[in-house]
Computed example of a mutant assay.
Amino acid sequence: MVSCGLNGQGTDGDGRAPAAPAGVTAAAGSATSVHVMWNRASGKPEVTAYEVYRGTTKVDEVPGSQHMVDVTRLKPSTLYAFSVRARDPDGRLGPPSERAGATTPAATAADERAPSRPERLRGKPAGSRAVQLSWAGSTDDRAVASYDIHQGTTKIHSVGGAQTATVVTGLRPGTRYSFTVRARDAADNVSSASGAVRITTPAGPGDGNGVGTGTGMAPSDFRATTHRKDGAHYLDLSWTQPEVDGVITEYQIQLDREPVTSLVWGATPPRGRAAYSFYVGREAGLSQRVRIRAKLPDGTWGAFSTERTVTTGQ
């Protein structure tokens, strides 16, 4: 775990290669494909492309606006490791991300029957930049390997066959979207599309600049206390992390509505409940309002948690 200094400001990265992409995940889509996803980089230097590697072999390249890809032509029943590197406009290539592994399922001989169509697709906004989707699971004569999520006619994500819900992030406020889901088996047979669900994201007040409050993907059950050690006071925070597709690797912490530090998890970010403690000074009786927000896998900021007031020495 790494925390930035007060005000959470770093260098702008001018003249330096991009950082390693964070939050890389991999999930088998079929016996011959794996869906790789990562957190979209934000800030400087600007990222113009991502290179995706299987082991040490480059297998794909996508524009900087894309943060997921399907790697195909793989072997069944095989463990693969994937990593991602970012490239800036000057061609500088950043270091590789942490590796994410996935094992493709076994191939099924002479399987030509597609899974049944996913039914009862439902959805609702999760703030102004995300939606939550859920559906009834499909059936297959062998097994459902994955579900493909489509926005309009474009596949935007894939989840494992045991998963019947997901969160789609990176959307625009005040915009109408149409989503469908298709089931896929290990032989790459794909079902017909579910019925479409149409969702309009609200025009939320979140402005992503540290001042707005946002409306979705907020940390929940946020708690704040203080403790004293060796004459110094520390602020102790704990919260339940937002449920997102991908991995949350960074949080911004604000005191009295001003950013004071950034919390950046290391190679293995925690799941579910999280906690963090940091130094706030030696003055007793100091009252401050504290809140946090997460940087989502698509690179946007989620909504702020409930704001708590804490007083040192109490």
Rank of each mutant, 00 (worst) to 15 (best):
W38S: 10
V24M: 07
G272H: 05
D230Y: 11
R99N: 09
V181E: 14
A26M: 12
G91A: 11
M1Q: 12
I292L: 03
V181K: 07
W239A: 05
G152P: 12
R172H: 09
T311P: 11
V62Q: 09
G231F: 07
T268S: 14
S220I: 10
T169Q: 15
Q254P: 06
N189E: 14
R198S: 13
V181W: 05
Q241P: 03
T225G: 12
T306N: 13
R271I: 06
G195D: 15
S97P: 02
T72V: 13
A196N: 09
Y234L: 00
W38I: 11
T11W: 09
A274Q: 14
D88K: 02
E46P: 01
W38H: 07
K124T: 07
A41Y: 02
W239N: 00
E307R: 13
P202E: 02
V190N: 10
G64F: 01
P96L: 15
F82Y: 14
R184V: 07
Q314T: 15
P173E: 00
R176E: 12
S191M: 09
F278I: 04
S77F: 00
E243N: 11
S128H: 13
M37G: 08
L74W: 03
A110E: 10
V167G: 06
A218H: 04
A136G: 11
A224D: 09
D188V: 04
A232L: 14
H157M: 13
Y80C: 08
P118G: 09
A196V: 09
A145C: 02
T56I: 00
K155V: 14
T164M: 11
A232M: 14
T300I: 01
W38D: 06
T200F: 05
A183E: 01
T226P: 00
A186E: 15
R54T: 12
Q66K: 14
Y147H: 06
I253S: 08
P115Y: 03
S146W: 05
I199P: 00
C4S: 14
A107L: 12
T104E: 04
W38P: 06
A145V: 05
V211S: 01
H67F: 10
M37I: 10
S262P: 00
G127C: 08
T153E: 15
S65C: 01
Q252S: 10
D298W: 01
S262Y: 13
P76L: 01
E61V: 08
L133P: 02
G15A: 02
P63A: 11
D256Q: 04
S30W: 02
G210A: 04
A81E: 06
S146E: 10
V144E: 14
E243A: 13
I156Q: 15
D221Q: 15
V84T: 03
I199S: 05
A81W: 00
D245N: 15
G101Y: 09
S77E: 00
A267M: 03
A102Q: 06
A100P: 12
T226A: 09
L255W: 12
G137P: 13
S116Q: 07
R228F: 05
A106S: 11
V168D: 14
D12I: 09
Y80Q: 08
V260N: 09
L171K: 02
R223S: 08
T103S: 13
K75W: 06
I248K: 01
G8S: 12
G127I: 05
A187G: 14
